[in-house]
Computed example of a mutant assay.
Amino acid sequence: MSTKKPLRPLYFGGAAAVAAVTVLGFAAPASAETPVEEPSSFTSAFTVMATPDNVVNTDAVATPGEAGATGQFTFRVNSDLEIICYDITLEGVTGEYMSPAKTATHIHQAAAGLAGPPRIAFPNPAPVGDGPRTSSGCLQGPFTTGILSNGVDTGDGFSLKTLEADAAAFASDAHTVAFPAGVVRGQLAQVPVGGLQTGGGATAAAPADVTDAAGVTDAGGVTGADTGAATNLAVGVGAVGLLALAGFGVSRRRSARS
Rank of each mutant, 00 (worst) to 15 (best):
G95V: 11
G95N: 04
G95C: 08
E96S: 14
Y97Q: 03
M98Q: 12
M98A: 15
S99H: 06
P100D: 12
K102S: 11
A104R: 07
A104Y: 10
T105F: 13
T105M: 11
H108I: 04
H108L: 05
Q109I: 08
Q109V: 01
A110I: 04
A111S: 14
A111M: 09
A111V: 09
A111C: 01
A112L: 07
A112R: 08
A112S: 13
A112M: 06
G113A: 03
G113H: 00
L114A: 04
A115K: 03
G116D: 01
G116L: 09
P117M: 09
P117R: 03
P118F: 05
R119D: 03
R119G: 09
I120L: 05
A121W: 03
F122T: 01
F122K: 02
F122E: 05
P123N: 07
P123C: 07
P125K: 06
A126G: 14
P127G: 10
P127N: 04
V128L: 06
G129H: 05
D130L: 13
P132R: 15
S136T: 12
S136D: 14
C138H: 11
L139E: 09
Q140L: 09
Q140K: 15
G141C: 10
G141E: 13
G141S: 12
F143A: 13
F143C: 00
F143W: 10
G146I: 03
I147K: 05
I147G: 02
L148I: 03
G155N: 03
G155K: 02
D156N: 07
D156L: 07
F158G: 03
S159T: 10
K161M: 07
L163S: 01
E164V: 06
A165R: 06
A165H: 01
A165W: 06
D166M: 11
D166F: 04
A167T: 00
A167G: 04
F170S: 02
F170N: 03
A171G: 15
S172C: 13
D173L: 09
D173Y: 00
A174N: 12
A174G: 11
H175E: 15
V177N: 11
V177Y: 08
V177W: 13
V177T: 10
A178S: 05
A178M: 10
A178V: 10
F179V: 12
P180L: 08
V184W: 11
R185N: 09
Q187D: 08
A189H: 00
Q190I: 00
V191L: 13
G194D: 15
L196V: 08
Q197D: 10
T198E: 15
T198W: 15
T198G: 11
G199C: 13
G199I: 12
G200N: 15
G200K: 13
A202M: 11
T203Q: 15
T203W: 13
A204Y: 11
A204I: 09
A205K: 02
A206G: 06
A206Q: 13
A208D: 00
D209V: 14
T211F: 02
